[in-house]
């Protein structure tokens, strides 16, 4: 019956204009008022109940990963954020990705493409620490954990924030 339906949903075929309006209105945060969904309802001309149920559906679909407080980690003293980049043997990339993601000091862990010869790294892990020493200790633990599955690695610290705005997934055009 659904033979013609695409196997993998794409944004175009499962996000309708109501979802898009809700994403647009909430991606930079909910209003800090007693009835935030009702305030959005008034702004968007969509019922608050609809907004809530659409958000729930987007969460069930995995489009929304979590709903909650997004603290400013930098302001809270997690200043030494190191972007660690790793060249992991291809056949171990998935197991290594999962092991690294499970470490308590890792917030994000992504596989990304290599660009040889300039860029040999295929795994990124964002490490958090209060000091550079703390981050270096984390790295040492990771090196031990990975053993020969690690070919090489580097840690790239940030020097300055040049731009930081709330995430915009979709823009109004």
């Amino acid at each position: 019956m659904f033979d013609s339906a695409p196997e993998i949903a794409t944004p175009e075929n499962y996000l309708d204009y109501i979802d898009r309006k809700i994403i647009l209105a909430t991606q930079q945060g909910l209003p800090l008022v007693p009835r935030p969904y009702h305030q959005l309802a008034e702004e968007l001309g969509i019922k608050a109940e609809t907004i809530i149920s659409r958000i729930k559906t987007m969460q069930q679909n995995g489009l929304i990963r979590r709903i909650g407080v997004v603290p400013n980690h930098y302001k809270l003293g997690y200043k030494a954020n190191g972007m660690s980049v790793w060249d992991i043997t291809d056949k171990h990339i998935h197991e290594v990705g999962k092991e690294i993601a499970a470490l308590p000091f890792v917030s994000h862990c992504y596989q990304r493409p290599r660009y040889l010869p300039h860029w040999p790294y295929n795994l990124f892990a964002m490490l958090h620490g209060h000091s550079r020493e703390e981050v270096e200790n984390h790295i040492q633990k990771m090196v031990e954990l990975l053993g020969e599955r690690r070919l090489t690695h580097d840690v790239i610290y940030s020097r300055r924030i040049l731009k930081k705005t709330g995430l915009r997934l979709i823009t109004e055009k």
Binding site: P11, I23, Q27, L63, R66, K75
Partner: peptide, 15 residues
Amino acid sequence: ILSRIGPVFTPNRAG
């Protein structure tokens, strides 16, 4: 201290 409160979207799903 608070960046925002709200949904955190999965990359590459909406856009």
